[in-house]
């Protein structure tokens, strides 16, 4: 019965705990509430009265929520601390809440945005180079680098596409129960590894590209630059930034997956 599910969801949703634990609470409280409701109905109460009485028997929702929260281990409470709303908005953007566009289209749109903003990026990089004391003109012209840029963008497109595709795959509902019950935090970590890879790859390629623009002996081929860039990934300082972004967004993405699991539980629109 939907009213019972909504009551349970109001109690359980704000609790800071893993999806696995919260789903256990949901199902168990719903089973209890259903039994109480049936008992009240059998006692010749009307549906509405039986519902009110069953809810009363369960107790004050706020007090019960607090008690349930206190039964959650401390490490799980910390692990599911609510993140600021703005960070969630970023994830809404990443998860394509508005329209649920296909992975390929989304990756293409991001690349499009990058190409559009490329002059700004290059100006910024050039400014940074000058500030660092490397007051030298670029060795290669922009036209010379077109092939490198094209390959770089293609690689970035591919990594973004794979990341988005896997993101959907990881977050999707499955018929296999253990997959649905996999803690959202693990799924979020998996996703973040993908983000780290995509962001790290782009930043390393970009750094290497800027190196390439500097004068040095002999010109490297596009292939050798990309290979060097890939080999440099584990040592790139950019990975630190990617890791920081990853840590910041892990819990946020976990909440996104959790929202999906709420939807899986019954598409309930519950006011918190």
């Amino acid at each position: 019965m939907k009213a019972l599910r909504i009551h349970v969801e109001r109690i359980v949703r704000p609790i800071r705990a893993s999806v696995l634990r919260k789903n256990k609470m949901r199902e168990e409280l719903l089973a209890h509430l259903s039994s109480a409701y049936e008992e009240e109905r059998a006692a010749s109460n009307t549906g509405e009265e039986a519902l009110v009485r069953a809810k009363q028997r369960l107790g004050d929702p706020d007090a019960l929520r607090a008690e349930l929260q206190s039964a959650v281990p401390w490490y799980e409470r910390i692990g599911h601390t609510r993140v600021p709303i703005r960070l969630e908005m970023v994830d809404y953007g990443l998860s394509r809440k508005y329209g649920w566009r296909a992975s390929a289209r989304f990756a293409t749109e991001i690349i499009g945005c990058l190409i559009f903003s490329a002059p700004l990026l290059f100006a910024l990089a050039y400014f940074v180079t000058l500030r660092a004391g490397l007051n030298r003109p670029p060795h290669a012209s922009f036209a010379d680098c077109l092939l490198t840029i094209a390959v770089m963008m293609a690689m970035l497109w591919l990594s973004l596409f794979v990341a988005f595709w896997l993101f959907d795959l990881i977050g999707a509902r499955r018929r296999v129960a253990p997959w649905n019950c996999t803690p959202a935090i693990i799924k979020a970590c998996l996703t973040n590894l993908l983000w780290m890879f995509a962001i790290g790859l782009f930043l390393v390629l970009f750094t290497r590209f800027m190196d390439y623009m500097q004068p040095h002996e002999g010109l490297d081929s596009t292939g050798s630059i990309l290979l060097a860039a890939l080999a440099g990934i584990p040592y790139a300082p950019w990975l630190g930034l990617a890791l920081l972004l990853s840590l910041l967004s892990t819990m946020s993405i976990a909440m996104h997956f959790e929202r999906r699991q709420y939807e899986a539980w019954g598409c309930l629109d519950v006011e918190e």
Binding site: I11, M25, E28, L29, H32, A36, R57, L58, G59, D60, A63, L64, E67, L68, S70, A71, V72, P73
Partner: peptide
């Protein structure tokens, strides 16, 4: 007994 309060106790004992 408020019926809901049984469950936190059960979860604590299970833990």
């Amino acid at each position: 007994l408020k019926e809901g309060s049984l469950y936190p106790a059960l979860y604590r004992m299970e833990e």
